[in-house]
Amino acid sequence: MKNNLIISIILLFTFTLKAQDSVNIKNSQKDTVLLWSNNTAKTIKKGRKEIGLFAPLKIGLKDSMEISIHPIFFFIIPNIELKKYWTSFGIFDLASKHRFSYPTLLYNVISKRGIGGLLPSTSTIPQMFKFDNSILLGTTINEYITTTINVGVDLTLSFGESNFPDIEYHIIYPRTYSLNNLFTPYFGINFTGKFFANVYYEYKFTAFFMTNTNQGSILENKLKFQWNISNKFAISGGALLTYGQYPYGQDGGLFPVFDLMYGF
């Protein structure tokens, strides 16, 4: 945990440095950072498409609406997400995200003997329909800082006999908790903007609230930097720090974040 504390301080310090720099810069080129998709209330432009090595395929259906699917995983975990920009009032933008996925197929695949068996082969997987809905409220202060608050609930409706354990691994646990526990509320705040030249930063804090008794919350801090090589290519990298209450006790973890993205 000592290492995690050091990394937390580095994450916080690097972010604070840049935030201090940005406050005196005039409000200009607000949308530069939004050329690429992000976790703000803004959507990508109509007709633009983006895909990452790990990130899903995103398509701007309208200037105010984008749709995304994860094509690689689509055949074992059918999924679709719609992001809708609704309106602006004053300096704030309002949007919502609606994601549907069907994890039953994937869970049947990973309930197996041997390597890749994340769950026991004796697991009974029900029909599971997972809905993740969130509201995003954001404001762009200048090209160096856009702040977005998001609040959401991950809800899973299950049908049929069910008997499988949770996947109690840092980043997976809060995202799959609703499969066995109906729903997971979460709250987050995101800061993103230009760091220097074509390098952008994104800091995202998310708190997941575990709804069963004696289970608290899991906090995630993600800091990543994205180098927009051009309008078509971008590279991002950073780290995700998690900490919270798991079934086995309090725990934390540090994970690298990396992606290669192509937009057109």
Partner: peptide
């Protein structure tokens, strides 16, 4: 100087992340 500090921080983060399952 700040950029060097940030890059150093990133290197440390990546280095610390080499054993993601703590095995």
């Amino acid at each position: 100087m700040k950029k060097i500090f940030v890059l150093l921080g990133i290197v440390i983060i990546i280095f610390q992340s080499c054993d993601p399952f703590n095995n």
